[in-house]
């Protein structure tokens, strides 16, 4: 049970991060290998903002929640204009270029932020014991088992992630921006013919995708710590989620994030984390080999 609460926290941030990757792949048909570094930048910027503001942790946190995704999104949009647009989003060259971007972002952070892990204080953090039920003398009774406790902040992560995902869903389905994005996804040529500024849409989508990763990181950084190498795991997990959910499918991404996030917590309780990672990696590779439409996708005719 505790594992699954931890799992829900993982799933919540993973859903945000993976959603960014999935959105970029869905609309632009490119794989962004530097996605994990945008996540890492989100956490590092959160540390800079909260130490600069330096007053109450809550002020720093709110500041980071706004500043980090915006800065990261702008940086990503700039990278899109300067690099990806110039190689015309060729799928293979994009991967090579984003590998380059990965090292540039990661190593620049090492030069400025340094090699140490640094904590960010949560805005609020009270311990909450959660009730559970058991069969007692008078039927079902409620009790507070040892260990089944979480913090208010962790619950907040879950709530916030759900709220952001709902917001994203509204953006994609109910607004003009969403319509333009979906039109571009469906047919780039046609979208251009209808006067949609495809280049600006691509930059925006790339920025939005990176911003979502940064948001996920800002939410999780008070629980973890900011470190220049922290991008690797979210990148791998996001890959797993996006592949299992079916490349580019947004609902599939959310379901897969829940599945992986929850199971990641559960699996690592039973296996050594290394063995769990080996199995997860191989399973994902096999999904791509034998079911490229994703576990949740429909087989094409």
């Amino acid at each position: 049970m505790l594992a699954s609460l931890e799992g829900a926290v993982t799933a919540a941030t993973l859903a945000l991060t993976a959603m960014g990757l999935s959105l970029v792949f869905g609309v632009m048909r490119v794989v962004n290998v530097a996605h994990g570094e945008f996540y890492m930048l989100g956490a590092v910027i959160a540390w800079f903002v909260s130490t600069t503001l330096g007053t109450h942790p809550a002020i720093g946190f709110v500041g980071a929640l706004i500043v980090a995704p915006v800065l990261v999104g702008l940086l990503a949009a700039a990278a899109d204009r300067l690099i990806l647009a110039r190689i015309n989003y060729d799928p293979e060259r994009t991967i090579v270029a984003t590998i380059g971007l990965l090292y540039i972002l990661q190593q620049s952070t090492l030069m400025t932020f340094g090699p140490d892990a640094r904590p960010v204080e949560p805005p609020f953090n009270s311990r909450i014991a959660l009730p559970w039920w058991r069969q007692g003398e008078n039927g079902l009774e409620m009790f507070y088992p040892w260990g089944l406790a979480t913090t208010s902040y962790k619950l907040f992560i879950i709530v916030a992630a759900v709220a952001i995902l709902i917001g994203l869903w509204v953006l994609l389905t109910r607004t003009r921006i969403g319509l333009v994005m979906r039109a571009t996804q469906a047919d780039r040529e046609m979208a251009t013919a209808f006067g949609i500024p495809v280049e600006r849409v691509y930059a925006m989508v790339f920025g939005l995708g990176a911003g979502l990763a940064a948001l996920g990181a800002v939410l999780i950084v008070p629980v973890q710590q900011a470190h220049y190498l922290m991008g690797a795991d979210p990148l791998l997990l996001s890959f797993i989620v996006v592949i299992i959910g079916g490349l580019g499918s947004l609902p599939g991404t959310i379901i897969a994030a829940l599945l992986i996030g929850m199971s990641d917590g559960i699996i690592s309780v039973f296996f050594s984390p290394t063995l769990a990672k080996i199995l997860a990696t191989l399973v994902v590779a096999m999904v791509l080999v034998f079911r490229p439409q994703g576990l949740l996708g429909k087989a094409s005719a």
């Binding site: 380059g100 971007l101 190593q107 030069m111």
Partner: peptide
């Protein structure tokens, strides 16, 4: 941060 050079060269 010597891998920075690898990133720049790749791009």
């Amino acid at each position: 941060a010597y891998m920075l050079i690898a990133g720049v060269v790749l791009v």
